[in-house]
């Protein structure tokens, strides 16, 4: 028989899981790029990867403290944004899409290659960088929580840190897009030339947007590696597409949409994968093997993205008049 309580409790854990927080933060960054500025960034996985590796390498190879490690990841993502932006932001939006998707893959392959094995750990990735972060934990050892949410002190610290970052990023984004700066950015989304004709340095604004969203991506990459290790295969192009799914689900030109979108995405994904796995076990889906069942959830994600784009292009929180899948 299927243990429904276990299924629901596993799904409920995703609501506050650090992975959900990481995806939410990356999606907020992408909302700045895609939803507000109209930049087609298909390389958010690359920004996350630079954040993750920047943090891990600064800790392991250079032995730097946590704050310097975080700064390393942030600086790496800023440099990456500048490298991507300087040649492409003067061109049409499509070029940025091509360049970002390629650049993210290049970054992933550079971290995977054996040449830099002593520093990057190649395909095995890196671990053992959490010491400094653990040492900062103010929570006394023990187990805390209620219902499905019972964790030890480190797990709680990761969750508090992760969601704290998400809250700060969301607040900054909300403030920015209520300001004249945000108005210029949204104007650029609508028509660059019109904004240029009004005396705004469009190129500079687009660069600022690319950098801010990219830094959020890098911070998301750091949250992402706190409950696991750094493995290059986690940062494939599909990661970017999941973040797009979250963004479109919540609403591309909203601040809270991507966050709620991430929660819904992970709760549903966890529930469905658990349900399908159990259903195969008890013989409800005789035509599926266990391996096939593991892939089925990603088919469901694809179907869900299509349904959103067709029937609710503005997402759950979006304003239908403002954003019908950008344009």
């Amino acid at each position: 028989m299927i243990d429904w309580i276990l299924l629901f409790s596993n799904a409920a854990q995703e609501i506050i899981s650090p992975t959900t927080a990481a995806y939410a933060l990356a999606a907020v960054g992408l909302a700045i790029h895609f939803g507000f500025t109209g930049l087609l960034n298909f390389g958010q996985a690359g920004f996350m990867m630079l954040g993750a590796y920047g943090f891990a390498i600064a800790t392991l190879t250079f032995g730097w403290p946590v704050w310097a490690a975080i700064l390393t990841g942030v600086v790496a993502s800023i440099v990456f944004a500048l490298i991507l932006g300087i040649p492409t932001l003067r061109l049409r939006a499509d070029y940025l899409a091509i360049v970002t998707i390629a650049a993210a893959e290049i970054v992933r392959l550079l971290f995977t290659t054996n040449t830099f094995e002593p520093i990057t750990g190649s395909a095995n990735g890196l671990q053992g960088y959490k010491g400094g972060f653990e040492a900062l934990n103010p929570i006394p050892p023990g187990t805390y929580g209620f219902g499905p949410w019972v964790y030890n002190e480190y797990d709680w610290w990761v969750r508090i840190f992760g969601w704290g970052l998400v809250a700060i990023a969301a607040f900054i984004t909300w403030r920015l897009f209520k300001s004249p700066w945000g108005r210029v950015i949204k104007g650029i989304r609508e028509d660059e030339d019109a904004v240029r004709a009004l005396g705004k340095n469009v190129y500079f604004y687009k660069m600022q947007s690319l950098v801010i969203g990219g830094v959020f991506g890098a911070l998301a990459g750091m949250i992402f590696i706190l409950p696991r290790s750094v493995v290059p295969s986690n940062y494939q192009t599909s990661l970017t597409f999941f973040i797009y799914a979250i963004l479109l689900l919540g609403g591309a030109a909203t601040v809270f949409g991507p966050i709620i979108g991430s929660v819904i995405f992970w709760v549903l994904l966890s529930f469905f994968s658990g349900f399908i796995a159990r259903a195969v076990e008890v013989g409800w889906l005789p035509f599926l093997s266990n391996v096939q069942a593991g892939q089925l959830r990603f088919i469901l994600v694809g179907v869900a993205i299509m349904l959103i784009v067709i029937y609710r292009p503005q997402g759950i929180f979006g304003n239908k008049k403002e954003l019908a899948f950008v344009k």
């Binding site: 004249p180 019109a194 904004v195 004709a197 009004l198 705004k200 954003l323």
Partner: peptide, 29 residues
């Protein structure tokens, strides 16, 4: 015509004003 379609009419107008200090990223916050 390049009206910024998905901005309100008022926001379109405000965008036209020159030298706004709130348009700098640091001060926007």
């Amino acid at each position: 015509t390049k009206a910024l379609g998905l901005l309100t009419v008022l926001d379109n107008m405000k965008l036209g004003a020159k030298g706004q200090s709130g348009e700098s990223l640091a001060r926007a916050l």
